[in-house]
Amino acid sequence: MHHTSRTEPISGQLRYERVLGGAFVMQHWSDDHPDFPDALSLLSETQSHYFDVRGIVRMFDLRLDDAGWTMVHLERDFSQRFKTRFEGADALQGTGEASSDGGITWRPDFTITSRRVPEGI
């Protein structure tokens, strides 16, 4: 990940798992930097429920298609949106933006590249 608050890239791990009989996909990530919290999300067809170790809970509207997905969370003081695109079968490219005015204006927040690795590595 390249975050706007850092000059160096941040590495981490991202895992996906079908849970509750396939009703949700659990997304769990941890970054190798103390300023970025470990977190998980439960994704349904239309929403992502986000939880992190700081106790932050957010709900995002989710749109998924064959090209990737988009998530948006709107609040008056802090909003976020993410756009993730599939890059073949084994990679994702994503961008995140943040807003402090309820989504009227957006600023770049981060970019992320995820690559599938075999389990156990």
Rank of each mutant, 00 (worst) to 15 (best):
H3P: 09
H3M: 12
T4K: 09
S5A: 08
R6D: 15
R6C: 12
T7M: 06
T7P: 06
E8T: 11
E8W: 11
I10H: 15
G12I: 06
Y16E: 01
V19L: 06
V19T: 09
L20I: 07
L20K: 12
G21K: 03
V25P: 09
M26G: 13
M26E: 14
Q27D: 12
H28T: 10
D31E: 11
D32P: 02
D32C: 01
P34D: 09
D35F: 15
D35A: 15
D35H: 12
D35P: 12
P37R: 01
P37E: 00
P37V: 01
D38P: 00
A39L: 01
A39K: 01
L40A: 00
S41G: 05
L43Q: 00
S44Y: 10
E45G: 01
E45L: 05
Q47F: 04
S48P: 11
Y50E: 09
F51D: 01
F51T: 01
F51L: 05
F51K: 00
D52R: 00
D52P: 03
V53Y: 04
V53C: 02
R54E: 13
R54P: 13
G55L: 07
G55C: 05
G55W: 05
G55A: 03
V57D: 01
R58T: 11
M59P: 05
M59E: 10
M59Y: 10
M59L: 09
F60A: 06
D61P: 01
D61H: 02
L62C: 04
L64S: 03
D65C: 00
A67Y: 09
G68F: 14
T70I: 05
M71L: 15
M71H: 11
V72G: 11
V72Q: 11
H73P: 14
L74H: 05
L74T: 06
E75Y: 00
D77I: 05
F78A: 10
S79W: 00
Q80R: 14
Q80N: 14
F82W: 14
K83M: 08
R85P: 02
F86I: 01
F86Y: 02
A89E: 02
A91F: 07
L92G: 02
L92F: 06
Q93F: 15
Q93H: 14
Q93D: 10
G94E: 08
G94K: 04
G94L: 06
E97Q: 00
A98R: 13
A98G: 12
S99W: 07
S99P: 12
S100F: 14
S100M: 15
S100P: 06
G103F: 10
G103K: 11
I104P: 14
T105H: 15
W106L: 05
W106R: 09
W106F: 09
W106G: 03
P108R: 03
F110R: 08
F110T: 07
F110L: 11
F110M: 13
F110V: 09
T111D: 14
I112R: 12
T113Q: 08
T113V: 11
T113Y: 05
R116G: 02
R116A: 07
R116D: 02
R116T: 05
R116K: 08
E119A: 07
E119F: 02
E119N: 04
G120V: 05
